[in-house]
Design a protein around this nucleic acid. Structure first.
Lengths: 267, 267
DNA sequence: TCGCGACATAGTGTTGACAGTTTTGTGGCG
DNA sequence: CGCCACAAAACTGTCAACACTATGTCGCGA
């Protein structure tokens, strides 16, 4: 019963990855090897291997005898990621403009138009059915850039976005910018497309920073020293055998957890 | 006797990394866990952990029950890396132009001038005492970009560069371009600096591609199908207990190996 | 002679146990 | 009442053994 085709460690890697993306493992939370091994009902060494791969992807940080932690993005991190995205997605846009077929460009345009009609919810929200940024990254032909954008940077931003809405009006503006970008691509103007994409992301950066500033303002001095780290007895527990008492005192949704531990630990 | 301060797995990671960078583990060669564990005189599980981290950095590729392999860069890979470098280093140059202090810029200029006098060998060769690209990446202030440039992309190129000289005359041209870049930075012209850096790398890309094409031409049809993979009985063996019979049939330098296995396995 | 299937072998996947380190809880002392 | 030393707990680091898979080899039959 070896699952499908991959190794246990591979599956564990995927599952932990999903746990982090879904917010079940909150940013900055501790990653406990034994807890995870019990949850997945596999050996600790196997979990260990998966965690080391996460470490390689810089999704968890670790130092010798300390507990591993999910990365917690500071504002500086977010700015750095957006700076990177700005130039790399600009490049991807330029390359895609040169690489895409006429049919693919027509399809892209049609999909963008359809998305606009289908509702205003899918302008610049990662993971939505139509996501221009993903489409461009995939189409650019540079596999390394695609991986960087869609697997290393974008997911981190998804993580971050969960807890920060958009500025009002930004959505419509983003749509407009998307439209201009796609039109430049369709006109086979690589330099313009790159330039527009860069401007687009730069504006999104400013919007996000404004949102964050407003948030910080609103929260006021509720918890300025930020008790991150050094927290007592609040670590993500391994779901007591009954599967009931989940640690739900976090402001994140810890669903998708309970169903994982329905085994009686008969050993 | 726990070494200095880090874990065994950490040290193993570093050592394997060095092995790959030094060419002792040639590109595309197989990475044998037991062989390495015997060489380092540590457990296989520990080596395994290190290899998984290398995998996370995409320096080795692996599929379920197959042997792990050091990446072998195709020409497409190199082009992709240079495309990425072009925009990311351009960004780094722009940010550094804005972030560096006057003193740091003066020092940078002085070092460049000194490097020019000290010999023509250090124009654009990674790892040399003065390396403008590293200096810019470090000074740009974007930690993520620095890591991408100096630890993920640059080392791969070092790997590749080992076996490809430069085009004649390229070195002087590179020096000139470096000089222009630094002058733009010194004049606090971020956009010009970014543009110059991008052009510089684009030119370097063309130079490298020309070199590769010439090489390919010179080799002719010596080994067109490229027997990489599926080679018989030639794998890097684990140094017989006497420490003598090293597998030296590879056209790469396998030095720095012998000295690692002087322990009698007294156990 | 060539194809093909069983066997042997090398290497990876997984596990449980033991050792070392950090954190936490507790009790005595100033 | 606060603080420091000490001990227990919790967790990570390391290892050796066992299970599983892939690959090369050898013998068989057509």
């Amino acid at each position: 019963m070896p699952g499908e085709q991959s190794t246990l460690a591979e599956q564990a890697f995927e599952r932990i990855y999903e746990l982090i993306l879904s917010g079940a493992l909150p940013l900055g939370s501790e990653v406990n090897e034994v807890s995870l091994s019990q949850r997945f009902d596999i050996s600790r060494g196997t979990v260990r291997e998966a965690v080391r791969r996460l470490q390689g992807l810089r999704l968890v940080t670790r130092e010798p005898y300390m507990r591993a932690c999910v990365v917690s993005l500071s504002q500086k991190d977010v700015v750095e990621i957006f700076q990177l995205r700005e130039v790399v997605e600009g490049m991807a846009c330029r390359l895609a403009t040169k690489a895409m077929s006429d049919e693919a460009l027509d399809r892209l345009m049609a999909d963008l138009e359809r998305a606009r009609r289908n509702g205003a919810r899918s302008a610049d929200i990662p993971g939505e059915p139509f996501d221009l940024h993903i489409r461009v990254a995939v189409a650019c032909g540079n596999e390394r850039a695609r991986q960087l954008l869609t697997e290393e940077l974008y997911h981190l931003l998804r993580l971050y976005r969960r807890r920060s809405g958009d500025l009002p009006g930004r959505r419509e503006q983003a749509f407009d910018e998307h439209w201009q970008i796609v039109r430049a691509m369709h006109n086979r103007d690589p330099d313009l497309a790159e330039s527009l994409m860069r401007s687009h992301i730069a504006r999104a950066t400013e919007s996000l920073l404004a949102t964050l500033a407003a948030e910080r303002e609103a929260e006021g001095a509720s918890a300025p020293p930020r008790p991150l780290r050094r927290r007592r007895r609040t670590r993500v527990v391994a779901a007591s055998p009954a599967g009931a008492g989940l640690a739900a005192e976090q402001p994140h949704e810890s669903a998708a957890f309970a169903k994982e531990s329905e085994r009686a630990k008969a050993r």
